[in-house]
Design a protein around this nucleic acid. Structure first.
Lengths: 229, 229
DNA sequence: ACATGTGAAGTTATTCACAGCC
DNA sequence: GGCTGTGAATAACTTCACATGT
């Protein structure tokens, strides 16, 4: 629902025809899987292999690669190294991109840890918390600042991505403040939808809802086929 | 990709026509928003209000409620209390449902905390970790067991939902073991897709991919309209 | 007047299936 | 023979728009 528009708006100078959320998500997964391939393995890969690894169909993989203009060779598949680079060409900002995290509670700390070892193209470079006890400290290599200083730090460092791990009642306020400081994309872990203008992008990471989905389908899905030999 | 089938398979005796993943997700959000409504507010709500709160359209909300057979009254909207109950009738297991978490690292602990105060219909009742240091302890009200005892505990307690927060290389193995013990639905935080048979449901919570999506759209989305007065 | 319920239309996403190539 | 690239077909999802109800 967020990008209600075709999501290929007048995208400044960027060439690629606006990819959709799902395409970007799949490309991200493809890249990660390719990077984890044992270096001893074949330098090419088939669409159906990548499909199986990513729980997709081969046709879907081929179409995704088509949309980023990457082309393989008949009967030999796709060059892994080149494909990784091509996906990077789409996903990564050439200049690099930095993120800020607001809310250094349990979840915030866990995420800082999660992202410590991270590709240089996209790093969390600052964390913020309203609790003065927490600021000044360095958690998982990331310095924690008082929330009040967030706007300056974000502006000075040109941070464009925000991770929200504050309690639900503060989420909207914090997000608006981050937006005002120049942040354009939000990863929201607070269990409440953010209301931001259309020129901001919000990805809801709604753990509660995901848990309820899993519970529902755990009950509802067809049971295992009875195995009679 | 997961439910490739229409997702309304021969669902045992359950009556509701198999709802889709998206519908379930939205219903979960609706319920949460309704529950958070100040008790002083009007006892009815309009589709367009719920739509605005959940970042949806009014038509979408009405259609979702239609699919669970809930009906409002013209010109007055939907009864909030009844609607909460109706969504519960779809989402909640009447008998209740329990979950197990594997991998008591930073993220696992944060999630245990997140779910501590939780509706009785769906609780994490046991955590498991391979590190013997961690077992026996109680973290956020939840007892931690050695991973080796997971199958017995899961079977004895009839746990059907699994949360996976182990490192990526162990995720597949742990998931298979949980499946063998009777778990049917998985919430996977490990950054690698799980390969499980069709009678299991897997929800991937791919934080890395979400972060890359946000970064991409933060760059790509149309900029704020220039404000000239 | 204004809201719901819903068939029909529209849009987006996925899969099919096959021509062309190694 | 087996794989890629892709138009065409299909399926899934969302929105429109209006009859109906209060």
């Amino acid at each position: 629902m967020n990008p209600k528009q075709p999501l290929n708006p007048p995208t400044q100078q960027r060439a690629l025809p606006g990819l959709t959320e799902k395409q970007i998500a799949r490309l991200s997964v493809y890249r990660r899987l390719l990077q984890e391939l044992p270096s001893a393995s074949r330098p090419e890969i088939y669409s159906h292999d990548l499909a199986e690894m990513s729980r997709n169909t081969a046709a879907q993989v081929r179409r995704d690669l088509m949309t980023i203009g990457f082309t393989g060779s008949s009967a030999r598949g796709y060059q892994v190294e080149q494909l990784i680079a091509a996906i990077g060409g789409t996903l990564d900002a050439p200049e690099g991109q930095t993120a800020a995290l607001c809310g250094v509670g349990n979840l915030g700390r866990a995420l800082l840890d999660y992202f410590t070892i991270w590709r240089p193209q996209l790093r969390i470079v600052a964390a913020f918390d309203i609790d003065p006890e927490k600021s000044g400290r360095v958690i998982h290599r990331c310095r924690v600042w008082p929330l009040a200083e967030m706007p300056q730090v974000v502006r000075e460092q040109g941070i464009t991505v925000g991770v929200i791990t504050v309690p639900a009642p503060s989420a909207q306020r914090v997000a608006e403040s981050m937006l005002g400081a120049g942040i354009r994309g939000f990863l929201n872990f607070a269990p409440t939808p953010l209301h931001l203008p259309a020129h901001a992008y919000v990805e809801e990471m709604d753990i509660t809802t995901s848990m309820e989905k899993v519970a529902y389908f755990a009950r509802t899905l067809a049971p295992a086929p009875v195995e009679e030999s």
